[in-house]
């Protein structure tokens, strides 16, 4: 695995909000084709980390190389080009309330893949809806969907533009165990089908066990532990053990 090329390389990343330092000199790599789970308690800066990767938050220091381009110092246009290759699943789903499911799916597609014909757009929408198992939801409004359905549609909206990197922000938070397992299975399916590399931010250990090739645990803004999920399972560290109870 270590011979694989890295698609994201973070060096000494730091980020604070006011006097509170959330990320303290974090360094990590995401290898091509791997699922990297980032574990940690709430408030340890997991979501801040991936928001810095896509440029939603500006880091205070360090470098973030995505496909060998440092996103902390590139132009807005270059950042836009990088973002076209990244899919971001938000914790809340972030579906556009005023649009139907179909319009939600069309929105990124028409803006990122401008050369597609109407037929191709329709085919692509049907393909991703079938992928997430919600072909019947096409004309529904987000308010008519359950929490799990919203997550699935949000996932469909993310993969519709064929991203090379997927960033999942707490994909199973607020879902029942059965739906969480379905989302975890979907994450694996997407990795296999679209050959994506993913960072999965979570504190759901079942999700990490099911999806992660490698795990990083954050604590107090620093990388606390790194390794395979099996190593974490065997660990005697009280903090790590607390996640497996």
């Amino acid at each position: 695995m270590t011979n694989r090329k890295s698609v994201i390389e973070i060096e000494n990343l730091s980020k604070s909000f006011g006097n509170q330092m959330v990320l303290k000199n974090i360094s990590l790599k995401l290898l091509n084709g791997e699922n990297l789970a980032v574990l940690g308690k709430s408030g340890t800066g997991k979501s801040v980390l991936i928001k810095c990767i896509v440029g939603l938050l500006k880091s205070d220091g360090g470098t973030i190389n995505v496909f060998e381009k440092n996103v902390t110092s590139i132009s807005r246009q270059e950042l836009g080009e990088i973002r076209m290759k990244i899919g971001f699943l938000f914790q809340s789903g972030a579906l556009y309330d005023s649009m139907t499911v179909k319009q939600n799916l069309e929105f990124p597609l028409r803006r990122i893949k401008r050369d597609l014909s109407e037929i191709e757009i329709k085919e692509k929408i049907n393909e991703v809806l079938e992928q997430v198992g919600l072909a019947e939801a096409l004309d529904k409004m987000p308010s008519q969907l359950s929490g799990g359905m919203r997550k699935r549609i949000s996932l469909a909206r993310t993969i519709i533009v064929d991203p090379m990197i997927m960033l999942y922000d707490e994909p199973t938070t607020g879902l029942d165990p059965a739906t969480s397992d379905e989302i975890s299975t979907l994450i694996n399916d997407i990795q296999k089908r679209y050959k994506t590399s993913s960072i999965i931010i979570t504190h759901d250990i079942r999700c990490a066990q099911k999806t992660a090739d490698r795990v990083i645990m954050l604590n107090d803004g620093t990388v606390y532990q790194e390794g395979k999920i099996e190593d974490f399972e065997k660990s005697a560290d009280p903090l790590i053990k607390s996640f497996f109870i």
């Binding site: 928001k51 896509v54 939603l56 836009g80 080009e81 973002r83 076209m84 990244i86 971001f88 938000f90 914790q91 809340s92 972030a94 579906l95 556009y96 309330d97 929105f107 990124p108 803006r111 990122i112 909206r157 533009v161």
Partner: peptide, 17 residues
């Protein structure tokens, strides 16, 4: 405001809009 709170504006930004 509600689009900001529910991260819809962020979602728009990361989808290159």
């Amino acid at each position: 405001g509600s689009m900001r709170v529910t991260e819809q504006i962020d979602a728009m930004e990361v989808s290159s809009t």
